[in-house]
Design a binder for these strands. Structure first.
Lengths: 246, 246
DNA sequence: GTCAATACTTTGTCAGGACATATTGACGTA
DNA sequence: TACGTCAATATGTCCTGACAAAGTATTGAC
């Protein structure tokens, strides 16, 4: 068994105990104090050391199992996953992703219009055909190079996009600021040829391969709040994710 | 509150109670007995009706929350997610996926060799350079059309691939049959141009866009058991996934 | 030395209980 | 009508306790 990392709990904090433990274990893994392949102490002993109940300890460990950082085996114990963990699948925007990766994304708003939803859009967003929606077209740059061409559609009543500085704020951050809690997204990742306009926007040749993603995002009441169709330059972007089989 | 679906429990079954409940709730959602947007009964009442403890009921619901089929809100209740749920992100092979989708996948093995791991392969699989690995190259068809060109590499000691009928059995099924429990995979999805040979294999034009995926899969002890590099025809395949923000 | 049985270890499942927190609706007041 | 307050509702967190199941180590017999 590995020696336990230094975990301290603040019982007066509003942050749940299980979350505090999970966060500190996660740091220990990321910092290397818990090495890949290392066995951590058993959950009964750890719970006793920290003065927690076992289900609380289990819940903390489960958070990291879900992130793919720990694996558990009945009769054996819990081990740090070998190999580099990139990130779990998360419901974040490209702006959030690039920012988190230390890249300074820059956004150019190509068009923002309040339009009537087409049949396709109304079907995706499950709203009445002809309902008012924001249609937002943007280019996202990293450095001097355009990385993504993005078209997003949102029901008008979700938020007033005209009052958001979309060159500075990612779309999802704006939704969060407006109190929209996104909980579920359906996503489809594919590839296509760059058409003439899009190729020009993305500094690629016509017919160059582009990585594509369509997404419909739903809030915590289950209402569709965004439909997006994005195209990315594959030399500048890829979807990296860690899958965990429970 | 919606009326509770008809849930029956077999307490003599080895299947955990929480799993039985989750499965039946899932069927109720898929069959339409629980409509999108519908509120399900509160967890305390449901636990009482089923003669379960509340944590067990919570665990069942959590399974479906993790699958993106239910959303929970404190003070309000638990609701079926609006919108069609495709599937959660799962650690499955393309063969499994296509089979589950009712498509009859056909496989053509192009090459199977026992080779010495290159530096790149040994780095990905975290094995010694020069160690023995299986190198497997295949084409996967749906109907008469090739859908994917796949190259997979596995450490030799994981299983003996030469004794597997890879035209009939998916690679992951073979690993499972050999007792390998895959738990975590790192995946990278991108796009590229089809090179000459690959284009010919996939019945595409040279330089056509292909959807790509590289994957390293780890077993439940954290050992890398597979590295794969796949290319798909984007007209025949896309990655569809449902993200859940917990 | 090998193999089978047993004991030990550790996670998985389940129960019952209590309190905290967020949400919503009803009601009262200005 | 609008706003504030309060109670009811429902999930979120945490605790104690017990048994089951899977994996590993140890021991004894051959």
């Amino acid at each position: 068994m590995g020696s336990p990392p230094d975990i301290s709990l603040d019982r007066s904090s509003p942050v749940p105990l299980y979350f505090q433990v999970a966060a500190q274990l996660e740091h220990a893994i990321i910092d290397g104090a818990l090495a890949p392949g290392a066995r951590i102490n058993n959950e009964i002993a750890m719970a006793a050391e920290l003065g927690l109940s076992r289900p609380t300890m289990r819940q903390a460990i489960q958070v990291l199992v879900d992130k793919g950082m720990l694996v558990r085996k009945r009769g054996v114990g819990t081990q740090v996953v070998h190999g580099k963990i990139r990130r779990s699948v998360e419901l974040t925007s490209l702006f959030d992703d690039l920012s988190a990766a230390g890249k300074r994304p820059r956004t150019e708003v190509l068009a923002l219009d309040l339009i009537a939803a087409t049949d396709e859009i109304s079907s995706e967003l499950q709203i009445a055909a002809g309902a008012r929606v924001w249609s937002l077209e943007r280019l996202r740059y990293v450095g001097d190079e355009p990385l993504a061409h993005m078209h997003n559609v949102l029901p008008a009543e979700v938020l007033d996009l005209s009052s958001v500085d979309l060159a500075q704020v990612g779309l999802y951050a704006a939704l969060r600021q407006a109190g929209v809690l996104m909980r579920v997204a359906r996503q489809r990742i594919g590839a296509k040829r760059a058409e003439t306009r899009e190729a020009r926007l993305l500094h690629e040749r016509r017919n160059a391969p582009l990585l594509t993603m369509q997404r419909t995002a739903y809030d915590d009441a289950g209402h569709a709040v965004e439909y997006g169709a994005h195209a990315y330059r594959p030399d500048l972007y890829a979807f990296e994710l860690t899958l965990v089989d429970r």
